[in-house]
Computed example of a mutant assay.
Amino acid sequence: MTSISIFMILLSVLFLVFIIRLIRQSTFTLENSLLWLGIGIIMLLFSVFPGIPEYFSTLFGFETMSNFLLVMAVLFSLIQLIVFTKHITKQTNEIKSLIQEVSILKEKIERMGKEK
């Protein structure tokens, strides 16, 4: 085993430990934590068995494994960006709705105060 393989295995294990600590601290939602745990496990698998990414890079026609891994990282980042944008849009709409409800309730309370 080469020193780069050992370094990548160590890095993958540290990444998994970091993700598990964030999950225990309730920093992530279940959906996000499963995604990051999956990425950590894939990183560990690719570190222990470097033939797996080599096989897929050859299968998909990439000249080098590093190009394949870079494309996979970019695609993962784009998927994460879409998921986060979806969550932000949903929360923005919920905030607008809450603001409207609070404004209506505030108006009703003011009217009731003036009637008394």
Score class of each variant (00 low, 15 high):
Gly38Ile: 05
Ile99Asp: 09
Asn67Gly: 13
Thr27Trp: 14
Glu101Ala: 10
Phe62Val: 05
Val71Pro: 05
Glu54Val: 12
Glu63His: 15
Ser103Thr: 15
Ile9Tyr: 01
Glu94Gly: 00
Gly61Trp: 11
Lys108Cys: 02
Phe46His: 05
Ser12Asn: 01
Ser33Ile: 08
Met112Asp: 13
Glu101Asp: 14
Ser103His: 14
Gln100Lys: 15
Ile42Ser: 04
Ala73Asn: 12
Glu110Met: 04
Leu69Glu: 08
Gly38Tyr: 01
Ile4Met: 04
Ile19Val: 15
Glu101Ser: 12
Leu16Thr: 03
Ser77Leu: 14
Glu110Arg: 06
Pro53Ile: 04
Asn93Cys: 01
Ile95Gln: 06
Leu14Met: 09
Phe46Lys: 01
Ile9Ser: 00
Lys86Asn: 10
Ile52His: 06
Phe28Met: 06
Ser26Arg: 15
Leu70Trp: 11
Ile19Met: 05
Ile42Trp: 06
Ile6Ala: 06
Lys90Gln: 08
Gln25His: 15
Trp36Gly: 02
Phe18Gly: 07
Gly38Lys: 05
Leu59Glu: 13
Thr58Gln: 15
Phe62Met: 06
Ile79Trp: 03
Ile79Ala: 02
Leu35Thr: 04
Gly38Gln: 05
Glu31Trp: 15
Leu37Pro: 01
Val74His: 12
Thr92Arg: 14
Thr29Ile: 06
Arg21Tyr: 13
His87Met: 10
Ile95Thr: 08
Gln100Ile: 09
Thr92Glu: 07
Gln91Ala: 07
Glu94Arg: 14
Gln91Val: 03
Glu110Asn: 08
Met72Ala: 13
Ile20Cys: 07
Thr85His: 11
Gly61Tyr: 05
Ser33His: 12
Glu107Ala: 12
Gln91Glu: 10
Pro53Met: 03
Phe28Asp: 00
Val13Gly: 00
Leu69Tyr: 11
Leu98Asn: 11
Asn67Tyr: 12
Leu105His: 11
Leu30Val: 14
Met43Arg: 11
Phe68Met: 04
Gly40Asn: 03
Leu98Ser: 09
Ser26Ala: 07
Phe68Ala: 03
Glu94Phe: 08
Val102Leu: 11
Ser66Arg: 07
Ser97Phe: 10
Phe15Thr: 00
Thr64Gly: 08
Phe76Ala: 03
Ser12Asp: 00
Phe56Asn: 02
Gly40Lys: 04
Ser47Glu: 03
Leu22Val: 07
Leu70Gln: 14
Ile104Arg: 12
Leu44Pro: 01
Ser66Asp: 04
Ile6Phe: 09
Ile39Thr: 09
Ile4Phe: 13
Lys96Ile: 11
Gln100Ala: 10
Gly113Ile: 07
Ile9Cys: 02
Phe56Leu: 12
Leu78Ile: 12
Leu14Lys: 07
Ile42Phe: 06
Leu34Glu: 01
Phe49Lys: 01
Ile82Gly: 02
